[in-house]
């Protein structure tokens, strides 16, 4: 069973992604911020990490750098609802930082599953 870690500061989004991915047969863990995610990642291996880009504590961008350094095999999907810059630009930055793919919030469940499937 493929293992997926989801990081987002919005509990509703965490809950949703968990529901969607678990019902699709993935093993899912969640983290509410970057620091929590790093702690989990030190002890566990994941096939895919889905991370929000803009979060309190450790930013999504920092997490991407961490993953690239400590778990280079892990595939990364960046998600973002945008911010002061356009959502595209955040996601563009995420891509250049090392994310394998990005997804603009809000998205359809099917879109998400499609992306994950492609990466595995």
């Amino acid at each position: 069973m493929k293992k997926i870690l989801i990081i987002d500061d919005e509990p509703d989004i965490l809950l949703l992604l968990q529901r969607v991915l678990e019902s699709a047969g993935y093993s899912v863990r969640t983290a509410e911020n970057g620091r929590q995610a790093e702690e989990i990642l030190q002890k566990n291996h994941f096939h895919v990490v889905i991370t929000d880009i803009i979060m309190p504590e450790v930013e999504g961008m920092e997490l991407i750098f961490y993953l690239k350094k400590h778990a280079p095999q892990t595939r990364i999907i960046g998600i973002s609802g945008g911010g002061k810059l356009s959502p595209d630009s955040y996601l563009t930055i995420a891509l250049s930082a090392g994310a394998d793919t990005v997804l603009q919030k809000p998205f359809d469940n099917a879109e998400l599953l499609e992306k994950v499937k492609q990466l595995l």
């Binding site: 919005e10 989004i13 809950l15 529901r19 019902s23 002061k84 919030k105 809000p106 099917a110």
Partner: peptide
């Protein structure tokens, strides 16, 4: 828009996702 788009998108993501579920 820049300020609230992020919030809106975050709100809309579970709305759309859970409705689909």
């Amino acid at each position: 828009a820049g300020g609230i788009a992020h919030e809106f998108n975050n709100i809309l993501t579970p709305v759309i996702g859970f409705t689909e579920i």
